[in-house]
Simulated scan of single mutants.
Amino acid sequence: MIQSLMMTNAFIFLNGQFPSCKNFYDNLNIDSNHLFCADGGAKKALELNYIPKEVWGDFDSLDSNSLDMLKSNNVIIKTFNRDKDFTDGELLISYVSSLNYDKIYVVGGFGGRIDHTLTNINLIFKYSNLIFLDQLEKLFLVTPNFIINKNKNKRISFICFSDMVKNLTLDGFLYPLKNHTLHRGDSTCLSNIITEDTASINFTEGKLIGVLSLD
């Protein structure tokens, strides 16, 4: 089973804000067999006519009608006590990560409480194949020798999540860099533009997140 999932993408719906545009979901080509939801994210899945494979949570954000519909469709439901060490989202992300999916796309990870949003963003450094999506942007971990293909003319920003990112080099961008030290809080790498079909990012030390515009 693990082998069959190696190049398959998973989707996780959390309980944050969801894009309102139907085309956003159509473009994702979500397969319900690889859709997992945390608590209230399941309600959004049902509203979009997706029947998820599994739903995890303490179910403080899911109404009884939605829960009954999930049960009637034989959805796997894993219930947790509200008094736990991890959020519903992280428990689910940890589980899905163990299934060896190629990429895990998370929708509904932003919006609502700022503490949840910041916690979700930091999960990128714990589960490196996470990609957070909303209607306008894609947020992902950037590692040394990182390549971005087929996004020419797209806007992108790079944000430092450590004290500094050392020897940052950007090739294939409107504003290139060579062995630059990017400090936490610097705005140097906001709103760059990809100018080549293949663009590269390299650095020797630090934690870096990329935010790619989808419009």
Rank of each mutant, 00 (worst) to 15 (best):
Y25G: 12
Y25I: 09
Y25C: 10
Y25M: 13
D26Q: 12
D26F: 13
N27G: 05
L28C: 15
L28P: 14
L28V: 06
L28D: 13
N29W: 02
N29R: 10
N29V: 03
I30F: 15
I30N: 09
I30T: 06
I30Q: 10
D31R: 04
D31Q: 07
S32E: 14
S32N: 08
S32Y: 02
S32W: 02
S32K: 12
S32F: 02
N33E: 12
N33H: 09
N33T: 02
H34F: 15
L35W: 14
L35T: 07
L35F: 12
L35N: 08
F36Y: 15
F36E: 02
C37R: 13
A38E: 06
A38S: 11
D39F: 01
G40C: 13
G40D: 09
G41D: 11
G41H: 01
G41A: 12
A42D: 10
A42L: 13
K43M: 06
K43H: 11
K43Y: 02
K44C: 04
K44N: 12
K44H: 15
A45M: 14
E47Y: 07
E47G: 06
E47Q: 15
L48H: 12
L48V: 09
N49G: 04
N49P: 03
N49R: 05
N49W: 09
Y50N: 06
Y50F: 15
I51R: 13
I51Q: 11
I51P: 09
P52T: 00
P52H: 06
P52W: 03
V55Y: 03
V55K: 00
V55G: 00
V55C: 00
V55M: 12
V55R: 00
W56R: 03
W56L: 03
W56E: 07
G57P: 02
G57Q: 01
D58P: 04
D58I: 01
D58F: 01
F59A: 08
D60E: 08
D60L: 01
D60H: 06
D60G: 05
S61T: 06
L62P: 12
L62Y: 06
D63N: 15
D63L: 13
S64A: 07
N65L: 15
N65Q: 12
S66R: 11
S66F: 09
L67F: 07
L67W: 01
D68N: 11
D68Q: 08
D68T: 07
D68F: 05
M69F: 15
